[in-house]
Design a protein around this nucleic acid. Sequence first.
RNA 1: GGCGCGAUAGCAAAGCGGUUAUGCACCGGAUUGCAAAUCCGAUUAGCCCAGUUCGACUCUGGGUCGCGCCUCCA
Length: 481
Amino acid sequence: MLKIYNTLARDKQDFKPIEANHVRMYVCGMTVYDFCHLGHARVMVVFDMVYRWLKASGYDVTYVRNITDIDDKIIKRAAENKESIHTLTQRFIDAMHQDADALGVQRPDREPRATQYIPQMLEMVAQLEKNGLAYQAADGDVNYAVRKFDGYGKLSGKSLEDLRAGERVEVDSNKHDPLDFVLWKHAKDGEADEVKWDSKWGKGRPGWHLECSAMGSDLLGKHFDIHGGGADLQFPHHENEIAQSEGAHQCQYVNYWMHNGFVRVDNEKMSKSLGNFFTIREVLKKYDAEVVRFFILRAHYRSPLNYSDQHLDDAKGALTRLYTALKSVPSPSVPLPAGEGSQFPSPSGRGARGEGAVDWSESYAQRFQSAMDDDFNTPEAVAVLFDLANEVNRTQSAQSAAQLKTLAGILGLLQRDPQHFLQGETVAGGLDDAAISAQIEARIAAKKAKNFAEADRIRKELLEAGIVLEDTAQGTTWRRA
RNA sequence: GGCGCGAUAGCAAAGCGGUUAUGCACCGGAUUGCAAAUCCGAUUAGCCCAGUUCGACUCUGGGUCGCGCCUCCA
């Protein structure tokens, strides 16, 4: 039985989807005005892992991750760049897809853009107004009347009183309550047509919180299973989403709220405002994308994750061990042909399908499964992978190697040709494969002639060029350090 | 100030009321011409103070420190 830590309950709970065998999941995606940083990478990878595990567990999953393509920052950036909103957002959506693809993140089933859901948003505002939860203020903005919604604060565990006590922003006299938030932002003079839409409250654009509520319920229904995002979205964003959706639809919005921990640098949250962020593409210049993915999945999704070169190097070394084990055994390909995944029972007797054609009765698979079922405990699941690697190295069993590759595949890891991972790409200015082969041949000749001094010299020279040689029973192999 | 989360060996990071986490590093051995890789073994833990218990890293209370949210943020 899968257990999920539900922020709403502050506890791990048994996961039961609303519809048997079908899971509907929404994750807050990016605001596209710049390149994604490692914090974004973590959300994408973490929920990709969740998506994959639900599928491997036999569920049909509808996964929605939105794109915020209208927002103050976008407008500001477009103006600075003297480009249109559309050009700017499209550019960064493309960049985001490149980054996500590199990290092995599967595309969500739907990727709605806020600007395509304006009618649904307006409809929601109208419904909220009708339900007495929204009002148009003197400045033209339509606000949500927080104190009219019973249960405001149930996700973040904050009461309105607590929130007011900590109020740090200047009180906006147009609001009935300082905590009221904007649903529809009234257009200001001089704003481009591109950033305003007609509505019965006048021209304007949607508030950020409204976007997710409208897209979520339009694509997944008024009540769905899982809603995820970074821990910083818990308040106010997700709290406000609940207020909007439940206020408009008069029913429970989401059953399980999941929040991933932050990526930190020097023990501080990585964020735009602190300026201490690394973009995904920056990091990928230095580290293999799979290493980055592995680095993220090695920690539990709710724990903070400190970024540093040392930790990435560490992750690289560990991943190398797994690939080395796969390399040592011939043809560890995925054991079952596609489409025949139903011959094994899936975890907990859920439907038997999906990408994980795994024999779940096998002991490593069982350990892997209970780790993943325990609130997606990937560190524990990864530990199982290492135990399996040890078994592979010890027994040279093709079956174990196949199991290793299959289980790792559920995490989106270890699917490449081991040789390719270990040897990497030719470094600019470094030795190419042909040059390395020539050196290896020369060394083999030297060894045959018992000229070990020469053989060692060649090996040392290669090592200084970042090439590690390994003499095996099958001959000499090499990898990049 | 309010609310919440965390503190595990040199580093990273999990589970668990009593029995090896795991990876990297380090030490010994096997293997190797020597290495590397691999295998076997050893060493290194549980912020502090109380309490519960036959027994606590694991539960309870208090403290200390760190982090986050309360403002856009993944």
